[in-house]
């Protein structure tokens, strides 16, 4: 019995090893394909790795590049946006995203986001969700220690420093916790989506009966507000809303 468990464990370890090796290999293979100008082949491999759950700034960035070169601008934008969630300040990603966006048919007068929302989002993406969460927890524990010191110290020994330290650490802990939550909602529950169909009609109601409100083209980034059946209510960058078929958009 023990033996069989040991064998199973061994097999699992080997399987993990093999799978990680093949993913590395296929990643490298895709890069080679890209360099030899087989962009669609490279894009397919990157997409498969993404679907298998692998994530890294490099993977998403390269996938975006491969899709762009293969002519699938919408997917390129999708992957650049995803890469930006991992590395929001990366210059190459932002540049390529800008290039890809310049080829999108629809041009919008984008409603500017409030600057502190933008800064907050940007800041929250500088570290991963779990990093923020752990930092928040550690800061919370530190603040508890300070509060203990503050409460037990006699007035004659100076209670000012522990008081302020408690205040600072508890605020920092709350800030990092909110950053963690924001990061999670941006990375794992992002409501932004990219139009993948070459042309989509936005209607006033879910279904085919609604009045036609607008027509958008592939590559446009929209925000999903609601979902009903096979339809999603999306908000365009200029603030207008309409129902489009869910199959025509892909979430970031």
């Amino acid at each position: 019995m023990k033996r069989s468990i040991a064998i199973h464990l061994l097999l699992i370890i080997i399987a993990l090893q093999v799978s990680s090796q093949t993913s590395e290999e296929s990643y490298r293979h895709a890069a080679e394909l890209y360099e030899s100008s087989d962009f669609s082949g490279a894009a397919a491999i990157y997409k498969r790795l993404y679907d298998e759950g692998y994530r890294s700034e490099e993977l998403l960035y390269n996938a975006g590049n491969a899709f762009f070169k293969a002519g699938d601008n919408a997917s390129a934008i999708l992957f650049y946006e995803r890469a930006r969630l991992i590395s929001p300040a990366d210059e190459d990603i932002n540049y390529n995203l800008q290039v890809a966006r310049s080829r999108v048919t629809d041009k919008f007068e984008t409603l500017p986001e409030l600057f502190f929302v933008r800064w907050f989002d940007f800041f929250s993406l500088l570290a991963s969700t779990n990093t923020w969460a752990l930092v928040s927890l550690v800061l919370f524990i530190i603040s508890l220690l300070f509060i203990l010191i503050f409460l037990t110290r006699s007035a004659s020994r100076g209670r000012l420093i522990p008081f302020w330290m408690t205040l600072v650490t508890i605020i920092l802990s709350l800030v990092t916790l909110s950053l963690a939550i924001r990061n999670n909602s941006l990375v794992n529950h992002n409501r932004k989506a990219v139009v993948t169909c070459s042309i989509v009609t936005g209607r006033s109601a879910p279904g085919d009966s609604g009045n036609e409100l607008f027509v958008i083209h592939s590559g446009t980034t929209v925000t999903v507000e609601e979902k009903l059946g096979a339809y999603s209510e999306v908000r365009l960058p200029d603030g207008n809303k309409g129902w489009v078929k869910e199959e025509c958009i892909e979430k970031i």
């Binding site: 390269n62 762009f68 540049y95 779990n130």
Partner: peptide, 23 residues
């Protein structure tokens, strides 16, 4: 002309996303 920049050729740093703590 305008073209995208080249792909990253370095380490892939592939990883499977860990479960999110806040959830």
């Amino acid at each position: 002309g305008q073209d995208i920049r080249f792909i990253r050729t370095g380490d892939s740093r592939l990883r499977v996303m860990p479960e999110t703590l806040v959830e």
